[in-house]
């Protein structure tokens, strides 16, 4: 009889151990998940704060931003784009799109300034495209503006050449030397294919806009703080169709 009671006790002990093991396992998993959810929420709040910081800056020009419930904040920093002898925005410009390089400064209100690019040449690199480039340089002329245009064919394929463009077969770049005085804007439009465009001058180019960085923060420093940084460029661009007087997605007649 005693032997039978001992067996029951052992079985009960094993079952209890098993139940305890399962229970502890489930409890650990829930704790981890709760901790992960808390981090993601913090990051999301940091990201939102960063974006709101940029919006706040764009609207107010203020670089410090705190969310209304004080749960997060963002520090905004701004630096000029360009200002160097090479401009490379790191963007891929699709066929028919245009990249805009300003050759004059902007006043504080964003209007066109009068400090013009002082170099006497600009080299346009296309990053190895197999097509053509249409290049415009707008310039100030008296009280108005003018525009000069260039066209280059880099491809040896006649189907990838624009009639009348200057042949630059195989070249990786072209250099414009006959710059108009008081240049304002250079636009480069790839044809037949997109291109990774950049320009290099023999002097520094004016600022092309701003790079706005916003660091969103949630929590206390050195404890559970979550950060998220958002960077965006604020540049001056035009719809490509305004480079011509007559453009239609449909027919023209």
């Amino acid at each position: 009889m005693k032997k039978r009671k001992a067996q029951v006790a052992i079985i009960a002990l094993l079952i209890s151990a098993l139940v305890m093991t399962v229970g502890l396992t489930l409890s650990r998993k829930t704790t981890i998940e709760t901790r992960l959810d808390t981090n993601e929420e913090a990051l999301r709040d940091a990201f939102n704060a960063a974006e709101s910081g940029i919006d706040y800056y764009l609207k107010t020009g203020t670089t410090a931003y705190t969310v209304p419930d004080l749960s997060a904040k963002a520090d905004v920093s701004v630096k000029n784009l360009g200002g160097e002898a090479t401009l490379n925005f790191g963007e891929y410009t699709p066929e028919g799109g245009s990249e805009f390089y300003w050759l004059t400064n902007r006043n504080s209100d964003g209007s066109l300034g009068t400090s013009y690019y002082s170099g006497n040449q600009i080299t346009v690199a296309h990053g190895g495209m197999n097509g053509s480039l249409a290049i415009n340089i707008f310039y100030r002329s008296g009280s108005g503006f003018g525009v000069r245009r260039w066209g280059y064919n880099f491809s040896s394929d006649s189907n990838r050449q624009v009639s009348g463009f200057t042949a630059a077969t195989g070249a990786q770049n072209v250099t414009i030397t006959s710059l108009p005085s008081s240049p304002v804007l250079m636009t480069v439009t790839p044809i037949f294919t997109g291109a990774n465009l950049s320009i290099t001058g023999n002097n520094n180019f004016p600022a092309q806009g701003e790079e706005i960085s916003s660091l969103g923060k949630v929590g206390e420093v050195n404890t559970t703080q979550a950060n998220k940084k958002v960077v965006i460029q604020r540049r001056y661009k035009l719809p490509t169709f305004w480079l011509d007087a007559l453009v239609a997605e449909g027919n023209i007649e």
């Binding site: 940084k229 958002v230 965006i232 001056y236």
Partner: peptide
């Protein structure tokens, strides 16, 4: 003419 572009997250 002033547009935002080159958005990225770090």
């Amino acid at each position: 003419v002033r547009v935002l572009s080159g958005w990225r997250m770090e």
